[in-house]
């Protein structure tokens, strides 16, 4: 089960309204390499995990990704506070505003809705862990692209935190892969 904690994992600060930046950042909310996709991918891969280290890692990283989704949602919402009609129109965020107001929604930067086809579980832990390591790398480079495009140092501070977590998760999945491979090797000699 899950319990909500009324705090962010990392503070979200913005310098001022910036709908253009919000429009690019939304992809880490509901895009192909975003936090929703990451969380749902890992949480549904747990059932076929044969060893406890893998069950724990998938559960805890899947949970942390939900906290990251909350952070990205907060960045989006804050970047729209105080934005003018002209800024929203200029950013091309007017269709988003019509459908969702200032709330974040599960879309990528083009406004395409989230799709379960972004993610996979094959019911085989090794195959799934390879996908997870690739997913962390894709999320990392997405944050790097966002940091390159953003001129807001406060937003970048939060994006850098999120980027760093992708590196740590990649590391943990790599260790889980190694432990699982060792477990499979050992099994042969019983």
């Amino acid at each position: 089960m899950w319990v909500y904690e009324k705090k962010l994992e990392y503070p979200v600060r913005v310098t001022g309204p910036d709908p253009k930046l919000a429009k690019t950042i939304i992809t880490q909310y509901g895009g192909p390499d975003g936090e929703l996709a990451a969380s749902l991918r890992y949480l549904t891969q747990r059932y076929a995990a044969p060893i406890n280290e893998a069950k724990a890692t998938l559960t805890d990283i899947g949970t942390e990704e939900l906290a990251h989704m909350e952070i990205v949602g907060a960045i989006f919402w804050k970047l729209l506070q105080g934005a003018t009609k002209e800024q929203i129109m200029e950013a091309g965020l007017d269709p988003h505003y019509v459908d969702h107001g200032c709330n974040p929604f599960y879309v990528n930067g083009f406004g395409d809705s989230w799709d379960a086809k972004y993610i996979q579980t094959k019911g085989d832990i090794l195959v799934d862990l390879y996908e997870d390591m690739a997913a962390e790398q894709k999320a990392r480079i997405t944050y790097e692209h966002l940091i390159q495009l953003s001129d807001d140092p406060l937003v970048n501070d939060t994006l850098k935190f999120l980027r760093e977590r992708e590196v740590v998760h990649f590391q943990r999945f790599g260790e889980t892969l190694r432990i699982t491979q060792e477990w499979k090797e050992r099994k042969k000699f019983y």
Partner: peptide, 11 residues
């Protein structure tokens, strides 16, 4: 959070 994640693979 960070130490618990580490401990999952280094119990």
């Amino acid at each position: 959070i960070d130490t618990s994640l580490y401990l999952n693979t280094h119990p």
